[in-house]
Design a protein around this nucleic acid. Sequence first.
DNA 1: GATGAATGAGGCTTCATTCAT
DNA 2: GATGAATGAAGCCTCATTCAT
Lengths: 192, 192, 192, 192
Amino acid sequence: MASNKYEEIAQAAVKLFERKGYHATSVQDIADEVGLQKGSLYHYISSKEDLLMQLAHRSISDFNAKMERLLEDQALTNRERLLQALENHLHVVTTHQSLTTVLLREAFSLKEEPQKVIQELSDKYLNLWTRMLEEGVAAGEFRPVNARVTALAILGSCNWAYRWYKEGGKLTAEQIAGLFADLFLDGMTKEQ
Amino acid sequence: MASNKYEEIAQAAVKLFERKGYHATSVQDIADEVGLQKGSLYHYISSKEDLLMQLAHRSISDFNAKMERLLEDQALTNRERLLQALENHLHVVTTHQSLTTVLLREAFSLKEEPQKVIQELSDKYLNLWTRMLEEGVAAGEFRPVNARVTALAILGSCNWAYRWYKEGGKLTAEQIAGLFADLFLDGMTKEQ
Amino acid sequence: MASNKYEEIAQAAVKLFERKGYHATSVQDIADEVGLQKGSLYHYISSKEDLLMQLAHRSISDFNAKMERLLEDQALTNRERLLQALENHLHVVTTHQSLTTVLLREAFSLKEEPQKVIQELSDKYLNLWTRMLEEGVAAGEFRPVNARVTALAILGSCNWAYRWYKEGGKLTAEQIAGLFADLFLDGMTKEQ
Amino acid sequence: MASNKYEEIAQAAVKLFERKGYHATSVQDIADEVGLQKGSLYHYISSKEDLLMQLAHRSISDFNAKMERLLEDQALTNRERLLQALENHLHVVTTHQSLTTVLLREAFSLKEEPQKVIQELSDKYLNLWTRMLEEGVAAGEFRPVNARVTALAILGSCNWAYRWYKEGGKLTAEQIAGLFADLFLDGMTKEQ
DNA sequence: GATGAATGAGGCTTCATTCAT
DNA sequence: GATGAATGAAGCCTCATTCAT
């Protein structure tokens, strides 16, 4: 499974879905990109929608996997863990920007059932973040914030980067994570 | 212009674009919703894409207008102004959630030219926020943050709400704005 | 309903389905036949399969209607009624030979659900025949035959005509019905 | 030729063609059924259509062979011969119901040339029946019926059974043949 | 203003068949 | 003999838009 050709197709699709969007990308476009006939694609994919589904799944699973690994690391303080989580998330967003775009912008084009699957994995990811913040509160490291809303705020910030991050720009993912960590941990207010 | 009928059509389109997405919404769907025949719609709109364009334009203009008015108010401290800006933004997102969805999720379906128009208005909005933060820094109220990245972080948080805010849920837009203000101004770190 | 155009399309489809079969007939073929674009057909039909369904339905309904009317006529002896029924059936088969062909040869291409509908109407037709024969037996006009099997035999004979009857051939439908009536009523055996 | 594998394929095809029809059965379906890859089938068959052709040929040849053998038997009266012919035909229809279905329902999907071959064999079969009836008439055993039309009537009755006969139902092929013989020889009319 | 027929382009998918390995 | 990748043609259907009435 995951033959080279399938991987080629997946990459081509990611690239095209990012550039033109799922609907504006035709199966013909993808076939052209990998140098196959339209019909030949169907040796590798079962449908255009399934291809989108696989990509979205791949993306959200990536986020979840990284987050789960992080939460298992008992050696970290909650501040450290938050910084790590931000770095992880932004690292994925920026190094797999196309794939993240597919997840965040195009997955809505999935039909109800597959969309629900993605939604559930996304909810799970949110829950991991929420739990992390709750633990920080419980440990006395964080103020008693509304963990879920705070997680949504942070994830919103980080996800938004799929729209504005430019590879080769002034800031690396790590630097952005640092700025975000400062912001979310210490706020903008100048100490007097 | 802006006849009653056009407004009806616009509202129907917003509703449908939110529910099914721009591509999955057919001109027939919109016609059905307003009780006209497909062909009759074209007395009011010039194209489906133009309808989307108008809606996105309406949405981003709303954000901009509110922000410009706010920045003109000289009586406010920068903290106050930030809180207001958050409230404004979240108020628009939550009370015009469908329209915001059209702007944030569907406007990408516009072709290059119209999309550039929307993008420029969005950039302008970002610039207004950036300026506001810079002024807070200059006034010594805010730490010397990277204003643009911070603005992107805040806007990401706020925009994300179009996806998760539920009308009639536990929190009002004002309460969310309050939580966000606390977060962005003072951070999560517990004072020792 | 039943606009002229729809009727044109239906007739074209009957003709083509008879000549080439349902599967070998493309929507393009039908469109060509009526002088429309492929896509334009869909103003009149909801799908190619539905068109087939309508035609099959039309055909079997025709058979049923004629038979029901006949069974209501109390003035006839059962012999007379049998002759009438044969004439009716063969009249339909021969004057609507194309449509009958669609019913008897092509309706199998329908998917399960629509096919069941047609099957039920066909079963009903068989039941009408069976009842007619039973009444002839009860009235003492017919031998105590197995009414259902006899009905199947007679209908098999009559239906088969869709394959061999040639318009303008030696025998009219009425003459064939006469020969069939002789056969089924009196048999081939020569009286000694 | 006629390797075991070909026979397996033929049987699979008969089964599938009966269940789903020729067009709705893909070469892949057949391959799946025999546990081969699509491409491997072509070591055994030259085309899907040829497979259909072989099956139809096999079926009609079977009918013809049985009928020819019967007509050579000089010891039988024509009544006996008719009963035998009915038994033979119905025996084939009921014990090879799938194959008969392929002949009677699917062979129409053949292209012109191969279809003509089958048609000629079918015509030949009809001629054998016609001759048999004519001999019965000549021998004074049968009334002076129109032999060809009578043969068509009888064959229609018998062929129709491919649609309604259920294995394990109330009647065996022999019993049906008996009922049919009574019907065609003596008719339904009750002797007074 | 409203209709609804018509367009024409394009979209996704299926499939029998071939062929190099 | 068997595989499975690849072809290329064809199929059904959708849809934004136009236009005569």
